[in-house]
Design a protein around this nucleic acid. Sequence first.
DNA 1: TGCTACTTGCTTGTCGTCAACAAGTAAGAT
DNA 2: ATCTTACTTGTTGACGACAAGCAAGTAGCA
Lengths: 219, 219
Amino acid sequence: MSTSPAGTACATQPLTQAERSAISDRAMIDAAIDLILERGTDKTTLAAIGEKAGYSRGLATYRFGSKAGLFDAVCKSISRRWLEYLKQGVGEKTGVEAMCAALDAFLKFVTDAPRDARVLQILYCGAASPLSEYRTTSVNIHSKQQEDVARWVRDGIANGTIRRDVDPKAIAAQYIAYIGGMNYLWVINPDSIDFRRANEDMKRQLRVALAADTGSSST
Amino acid sequence: MSTSPAGTACATQPLTQAERSAISDRAMIDAAIDLILERGTDKTTLAAIGEKAGYSRGLATYRFGSKAGLFDAVCKSISRRWLEYLKQGVGEKTGVEAMCAALDAFLKFVTDAPRDARVLQILYCGAASPLSEYRTTSVNIHSKQQEDVARWVRDGIANGTIRRDVDPKAIAAQYIAYIGGMNYLWVINPDSIDFRRANEDMKRQLRVALAADTGSSST
DNA sequence: TGCTACTTGCTTGTCGTCAACAAGTAAGAT
DNA sequence: ATCTTACTTGTTGACGACAAGCAAGTAGCA
């Protein structure tokens, strides 16, 4: 259709090979996000991705090797953006405050970039299938997130803001499960989820459930 | 291979048509569960399901109409078994006790029937894709579960065991999200999840976070 | 600067597989 | 004997994957 596939003005200045492939990669990942949102992963074809990005039907396969390879790239691309939100929101906080800030960051991410949030969840879901070629990507991301949360909890215990008798790893798994589960429920039925309200409740519950004993009770 | 497809002894006594189709349905759903566990939904073919069940490559399509139709049937079949565990475990309990009993029932289900639990999660994940033909099945199941939990919370508030200032629907969504999220983490990386420990922690947190004020504090 | 050899980005042709459907056969019902 | 239902086999179109080829960019050399 247009003279330059990705819509950039490059008539005067020729591009280097690296620039060309960076542009087409970006265009195909964007096209994939659109198509996954529209049709889901199953009904999104590599040919449609290549053509929507302004290239041929064969480029997506050629560049990413396989459908799973492309989805893996999309997964990593969106994850990178999400991690920026997370870093931005949490900063140097630890303990319960870090956990609450991460919840707020997640809410902000879902609000600012609902398309990314939806696609990320859809792709994580695809990783649940055995032999999924980007399963390890999902496992790594979730493991890393659990480690981060566990560290916040340990730090909270160390500085006396979190009770000593909780298991950081267990808390981390629960916390990550909660976020992923809410995102899933939101994806399949957006109207049924009030993220803002749920987050406020969750933050209060975290403060109550993890607060170090201030004088009273047991074991 | 064998003379009777599903392995039943029927040489002497002819079967009714209803029995025949019930047997083949059952056999194909079982075969589908095996194959989904082995290869995931994408790489499970309708032909393989029919043949593993002891029939022809075409029967699965003929009976269930489409791959999504078959998965929908598998989803409903396993859900039915899970709901029996749930009913069994919860009985007439309400409030926090019902929520804790449901967690125990879930643990028991995952322990007794890990294959069912894995496949159910894999199928729920498939329902996250737009245009997924069994998405409504997942939405309905999750909605119903949320309603059940919300009712337990309302009953708990009514009989004074749960604090008045919580939103039953929000609590229900969080609770269902937690269970689904844990199941997901377990499916993608079983070693990282200690369900027993997590459930004990969760029960304690539910009791702490939802307990009606007994004299002290805020608002 | 122009010419040539090489590399990399991208396209088109092709094959095997699979879901879906249609037409046919066999088994139970009336 | 006829009809209905369970099941099988033939076929088609779509898609993922690959391979061969074309085109655009890069580097060496005069």
